[in-house]
Design a protein around this nucleic acid. Structure first.
Length: 532
RNA sequence: GGUCUGUUCAUCUAAGGGUUAGGAUUCAAGAUUUUCAUUCUUGCCAUAGGGGUUCGAAUCCCCUACAGACUACCA
């Protein structure tokens, strides 16, 4: 079998979502692979909105798609204007405008009519009730109803109708459709860039509706083929759910006489649930506590779905994680910028099987990106969170704190739990730590230690460290005798960065205050635990 | 039910006829940090099952099982 990939063509790919709700992460991955493919081969990445089903349109969905792509850094070359709006009028950069199919409405009918004239399609006048009845009858007989060559001559169609009768019917009836006349028994040989050769016999396929008189709109299949042709799409990279309609699309290209220049196809496997069976759905996120959407989504019904952005993921981490779900470069590198991905991406290395999404790995990616950010950048992100709590401190201090805690965090949102004691004195003490580190002799030692620290000048990490160790050596005490107790006074728990980092950042006054205030409280607290 | 697609550690995956089947995440243990986390080391854990082809199969072929998608005047 020859590989029908047409390498000589200029690469033009499209992401063509339907604005029927929030774009879920599987959709983002499809957009990403298209974008990466275009960049890898110096091609053009086009955004096209497939809104041919007015009944399923959801307000805000189109805007959501655009915002999601924007957040991810997946920038279309064509179809979206510089101010991130769908291009509606043609110009040099957007020669095929409009890029919203509802606005291309007048264009499609002639193509459907051409097919009728050429004998590849026909008019069908069956009512919804008739079709329903057929389906119910077939179901009752234990079969499924297929509108194809076995049945089409018994249906209400133009196939055996005199031409003038057809004309009259087209004018008097407003609910007819144009159906593709599926060949009876042909093996359609197809090629998929990811899956290889596929053959399907047309006997199991049906006469798909291409165009509807009722709303004068094409169905997906017609609009898709016509627009891909008009927009000179070279590669169609889309989800696996489209694989079953690939034979129809091949046949459509053939019927139009466009086979020689039809695009190459690549079908991406689906994203699966983290547990159990089936494809990833909105419900999984709710059940397992992770987002399935890039951005938070407020449905018109009022339901809120969480988003990666709002959950504190960095877009780079989200994109990196998504890229490695079903693709890998063949090396052991796992962390990639968008530019690196664009340089490495190829369809040959896309995995055939479905990828089960793993929330743990997603968190790990975010942690990696968090660690790699500069302290100053993180401080910029942390400051608003502090301000919300009414805390106004210098950027220097926030930056220093970020430097000390970033290795301990996965999200910026973790920062407060990890560093509140730098800004407000601890209000509670970890009971286990108190039991472990607070001994009868501790209060006396801690008071002595406070005196030692108050004499240190300048109050730096190094100087305080030296002074404490000198005192320890002088008294012939092991460090364990006071270090953790001191930490307890300052932090409230047995955790956090190095004790002298904390001491120097807190400052002499605050350290003295916390030791004198808390030594007694902890002693009482501890005896409370003993007595209970 | 029918059609198509898929199946390597729990999860993401590498290995395009010859390796002790490799890496990452998770989990566990140890080291480091007298804390916690990081880091490092180690460990646990896989070719769905059965037949072929071959000197040799995760890899090629067939069957079975399982999984998924599709089966609308939705996309």
């Amino acid at each position: 079998m020859n590989n029908r990939q047409n390498n000589s063509r200029k690469v033009r790919v499209r992401f063509a979502p339907s604005p029927t709700g929030a774009l879920h992460m599987g959709g983002v991955r499809t957009a990403l692979f298209n974008y990466l493919f275009a960049r890898r081969y110096g091609g053009t990445f086009i955004l096209r909105i497939e809104d041919t089903d007015a009944g399923r349109l959801v307000p805000g969905a189109e805007q959501y798609i655009i915002e999601a792509l924007q957040w991810c850094g997946i920038v279309p070359d064509e179809g979206l204007t510089a101010d991130w709006k769908i291009a509606e009028t043609a110009d040099a950069r957007h020669p095929h405008a409009p890029y919203r199919q509802s606005q291309r409405k007048p264009l499609y009918r002639q193509y459907a009519e051409d097919l009728v004239r050429a004998g590849h399609a026909y008019y069908a006048f069956d009512t919804a009730e008739t079709l329903d009845k057929c389906r119910r009858e077939a179901e009752a007989a234990g079969q499924s109803f297929t509108y194809n060559y076995t049945i089409r001559r018994q249906m209400d169609t133009s196939l055996d109708m005199p031409l003038d009768a057809v004309q009259r019917r087209l004018l008097s009836d407003t609910h007819w459709v144009i159906r593709f006349k599926m060949p009876e028994n042909r093996d359609v040989q197809m090629h998929d860039l990811i899956r290889g050769d596929i053959t399907v016999n047309t006997a199991t396929l049906d006469d798909k509706v291409l165009w509807k008189r009722a709303d004068e709109l094409p169905t997906y299949h017609l609009a898709n083929i016509v627009d891909d042709r008009l927009m000179a799409i070279s590669h169609v990279i889309r989800g696996e759910e489209w694989l079953p309609s690939l034979p129809l699309h091949y046949l459509l290209y053939e019927a139009f006489g466009w086979s020689a220049s039809q695009p190459d196809f690549a079908h991406l496997s689906l994203l699966l649930k983290p547990d159990g069976k089936g494809k990833l759905s909105k419900r999984d996120g709710e059940r397992h506590g992770f987002p399935v959407f890039p951005l938070q989504w407020l449905s018109p019904a009022g339901d809120i779905s969480r988003g990666y952005r709002e959950d504190g993921y960095f877009p780079e981490a989200f994109v990196n994680m998504l890229a490695l779900l079903g693709w890998n470069p063949g090396t052991e590198q796992e962390l990639f910028s968008l530019d690196e991905l664009a340089a490495l991406f190829s369809l040959e290395r896309v995995v055939k099987s479905g990828a089960r999404f793993n929330p743990d790995k997603a968190r790990w990616f975010n942690q990696q990106y968090l660690k790699s950010k500069s302290d100053a950048d993180l401080a910029l992100l942390y400051r608003p969170l502090l301000q919300e709590k009414g805390i106004e401190v210098s950027m220097e201090k926030i930056t220093a704190v970020c430097g000390l805690i970033k290795e301990r965090a996965t999200f910026v949102a973790d920062f407060w739990d990890l560093s509140s004691y730098f800004f407000v004195p601890p209000a509670t003490f970890d009971a286990k730590a108190v039991q472990k580190y607070w001994r009868p002799e501790t209060p006396d030692l801690i008071r002595q230690l406070a005196d030692v620290l108050s004499a240190v000048e300048p109050f730096t990490k190094e100087a305080t460290g030296e002074a404490v160790h000198a005192w320890l050596a002088d008294r012939n005490l092991p460090p364990g005798a006071v270090m953790n107790a001191l930490r307890l006074c300052l932090v409230g728990a047995a955790k956090g960065p190095g004790i002298f980092d904390i001491i120097s950042l807190l400052g002499k006054t605050e350290v003295e205050l916390r030791i004198t205030n808390y030594e007694l409280r902890i002693t009482n607290y501890e005896s409370g635990i003993r007595n209970s």
